[in-house]
Structure formats: structure tokens, C-alpha cells
């Protein structure tokens, strides 16, 4: 009886995680790095809009446009100043570096914008709607649509666009790619710029829903979880994984107990991973001897 509502609400909640997870997959497929600061870049995207509007008397949509450009530049700087110098270090070190980047963003936002939450404008209406007894709001549905659109766009990018295929080639075999004339450093930079813009878009969509505060970046943990669940290299996996996690969480809260919702969710995740270690859509990694 509650099932349709659980499904819909779970899907809209999960779409939030999926949108962040897509960013993880993008960076991972492009560079093999897990960007633990991605959640903070998501928050940064929304904060940039607020910041721009604080100092420039321009309306919301131009501010968004400027914020996306700023976010892309920021991603470029991160890649050049932090990731490029350490690209030969072990992966774990690079991951911790992304963590430090996230920390810098979070504390920087806290210092400049203050520790309290900021209001943020909804892009689509949050007014409650109801259809056949199932409640929703267009603002939440927008997230689902956005996740699907981003997934679609990235899919097309990797499968059909020259730059996308170049990215995949670079990631699999940098030497080979560069022998083929692919400008590897430029490719890597463009991945970071793309992911940063994607994160900013996610932030702008999510901020009114999850509340804009320096802590908003914590959503990165859920995004990471979902990306792993989906197989970490699979874009549809990230989206499906997110939707599944959202539904599992909601169902666990209702059918088990809200107090142990988190534990139940993680237990189920562990079960899934043990049964299917490559995640839902990932390919089983074949180790070359």
C-alpha cells in the first residue's frame, strides 16, 4: 500500500546520490583517481552562485552561467596545481590529496560564507503535488531527469565522441595514446574541467533540496558508495545503483526501523558486494599475471 510512495520517494532520494556518483565515475574513468573532494565541489558550485549574486547585481540564471565557468576554472586549477604534480605517486596518495582538496574547499566556504546554512532558489517547483495518492514535487523529479540526462550525455560522450574515446584510450594506456598523437595532459585537464562543471550543476540542483551549508559535501560519501555499488566504471551502474540505494534506504527505514536505517543499508550493500563483487554493472577485473 505504501509501496508506490516508497518507490517514488526512494527513486527521487536516490537520484541525488546518482548525480554525485556520475561525477565519481567520470573522474575515475578518465584518470583512475577516486575524487574524495567531489562532494565539496558539488557544494562549491551552489555557493559560487550565491557568492556571485552577493557581489554582482545580476539575476539568477546569468549567475549560474558564471558559476559554472568559475567551477570549470577551479577544476582546471586543481588538476594543474595538485593532481598533475603527484600523478606518479601511488593511487592512495592521490586519493588523500583529493580529500585535502575537499577539506580546503569545505573550510574555505565555512570561513568565507559562514558556518550557517544559506537559502538557495529552486529551479523547479517544490510545491507538493499528488498523483493517484502518491506525493511528489517537481523539484525532486527534476533530479531524476537530470541524472538520466547527464548519464545519457556522458554515455554518448564516451562511446561516440572523439574526445570521449580519446579519454578512455588515455586512461587505459597513456603511452599508447600519446604515441597515437593524443595530447594526454590536455585530456586529463579536460576531464577535471568537465567533472567540476558537472559537480557544479549537481550542486545547483541539489542545494535547495538538501540545504546549502559547508556540510553539504558529506553527500560525497553516499555518491562514492553508489558508484561502487554500480561497478565504478559504469555510468548506468551509477544511476541504477543510486536509485536502488535510495529505495533500499527508504524501505529499510519503514520496514525495519528508522533508528538503524544506516546500518541496515550498509549491511545490504555488503551482501550485494559479497554476492557480486564487481558491483551491479562492473566488469570483473581480470588480473594479468
Amino acid at each position: 500500500m505504501l509501496l508506490p510512495q516508497i518507490l517514488l520517494s526512494g527513486i527521487t532520494a536516490g537520484a541525488v546520490y546518482a548525480l554525485v556518483a556520475l561525477g565519481f565515475v567520470l573522474i575515475y574513468r578518465g584518470t583512475h583517481v577516486i575524487h574524495f573532494g567531489l562532494g565539496e565541489q558539488v557544494a562549491l558550485g551552489a555557493y559560487l552562485v550565491v557568492l556571485i549574486q552577493l557581489y554582482l547585481p545580476i539575476p539568477f540564471w546569468p549567475a549560474i552561467f558564471l558559476a559554472l565557468i568559475a567551477a570549470g576554472i577551479f577544476g582546471f586549477i586543481i588538476e594543474r596545481a595538485v593532481m598533475r604534480p603527484i600523478k606518479m605517486q601511488p593511487i592512495l596518495v592521490q586519493i588523500i590529496a583529493t580529500l585535502a582538496v575537499g577539506l580546503a574547499i569545505r573550510e574555505g566556504l565555512r570561513a568565507v560564507m559562514g558556518p550557517q546554512a544559506w537559502p538557495f532558489q529552486f529551479l523547479l517547483s517544490p510545491v507538493p503535488q499528488s498523483f493517484m495518492g502518491v506525493h511528489f514535487a517537481w523539484a525532486n523529479i527534476a533530479i531524476v531527469i537530470a541524472a538520466l540526462l547527464v548519464m545519457g550525455a556522458l554515455y554518448v560522450f564516451f562511446a561516440h565522441m572523439k574526445l570521449g574515446r580519446a579519454v578512455l584510450a588515455t586512461c587505459q594506456n597513456p603511452t599508447g595514446a600519446s604515441l597515437m598523437g593524443i595530447p594526454v595532459p590536455t585530456i586529463v585537464s579536460s576531464i577535471w574541467v568537465m567533472a567540476s562543471v558537472l559537480a557544479a550543476i549537481a550542486g545547483i540542483l541539489l542545494a535547495p533540496i538538501v540545504t546549502l551549508s559547508p556540510e553539504m559535501g558529506l553527500i560525497g560519501i553516499k555518491g562514492f558508495t553508489v558508484a561502487v555499488l554500480g561497478g565504478f566504471t559504469s555510468l548506468p551502474g551509477a544511476v541504477v545503483g543510486g536509485l536502488i540505494l535510495g529505495v533500499i534506504e527508504t524501505a529499510a527505514g519503514i520496514y525495519v526501523s528508522t533508528a538503524v536505517k544506516d546500518a541496515t543499508t550498509y549491511l545490504l550493500l555488503v551482501l550485494i558486494i559479497i554476492v557480486r563483487p564487481q558491483g551491479l554493472f562492473g566488469a570483473l577485473a581480470v588480473k594479468k599475471v
Binding site: L2, Q5, I6, S9, G10, T12, A13, V16, I209, V210, E215, L218, I219, K222, G246, E249, T250, A251, A252, G253, I254, T258, A259, K261, D262
Partner: peptide, 17 residues
């Protein structure tokens, strides 16, 4: 009497109950 975590972003299960 329902419970949530400070970093949670969705409360559908609590609210439905």
C-alpha cells in the same frame, strides 16, 4: 517517535511512518 541522522537528506521513511 522516529529517528534521523544529522547528515541525512531524505526523510521519507520517517515521515511516512
Amino acid at each position: 517517535h522516529e529517528i534521523f541522522g544529522p547528515a541525512d537528506t531524505d526523510f521519507t521513511s520517517q515521515i511516512l511512518k
